[in-house]
Amino acid sequence: MKKDEIRIAILRIEGTNCEEESYNAFKILGTKPEYVHVNELSRGLKKLNDYQMIFIPGGFSGGDYVRAGAIFASRMKGTISMDLKKFIDDGKLVIGVCNGFQVLIELGFLPGINTDWSEKPQAALAPNISNRFECRWIYVKKEKNSCEFLKNIDDGKIIALPIAHAEGRFIFSKENEKKYLEHMIDNNQIALRYVDPNGNYEEYPWNPNGSLYNIAGICNENGNVFGLMPHPERAFSRYQHPGFYRNLYEEPGKKIFKGMVDYIVKKF
């Protein structure tokens, strides 16, 4: 498939943000991104099947009432979840950033332990351990994982990305914690982990929300559903990097986006 044929649905609902950054990122990479409101899908005005990738951006969907991501997830559950399941079964990419990650967890598509879609959430993104909205740049380490589209970043590479969330503490229920975590490690489902600048897995503030096992980003067992708390679209251009004036021309977000686009070009 050629780049300019790739159609990417950037899902929207009231309270979504960062969709413009994401749109621009995909546009710059030569694909055809489109804003798609959930209502357009539920009313049949647009069809998920027409897209090769779904991108669920960050924000405060539905005002973050009940729990972050819960309203967005329930709106999708009630309308398009079967279509979404088929989309995922077809091997197409579904990416959730920040609030989008919370939505994928609430929907049960992530972490997807022993199943591709669990009826009830298997994990939770609970309020940050600091009880604050953490909005700053952090370091994550790319782990060995099953996401094909992250292969262009070397395993063990430390990258800086911005975060902005109040509910990002990835946890399992106490009774399943050990079992599920081991399962995720065995299946290479942990893609990104919070580290200090030297690559050590440290506690708060390096682990900004107190996540279990310093988890920042995970994928499902097949590696085509990926959720992460940091915002790659806010680290896409060198001008967005805080080190820009010190000639630090890093574009970690661009690598992640480019990987996704290249993956679709190759696969479809």
């Binding site: 819960a70 609430e106 959430p121 939770a124 229920s173």
Partner: peptide, 10 residues
């Protein structure tokens, strides 16, 4: 509760 108000994990 099952469908919206509760995440049984926490």
């Amino acid at each position: 509760c099952d469908k919206l108000l509760v995440n049984p994990v926490i």
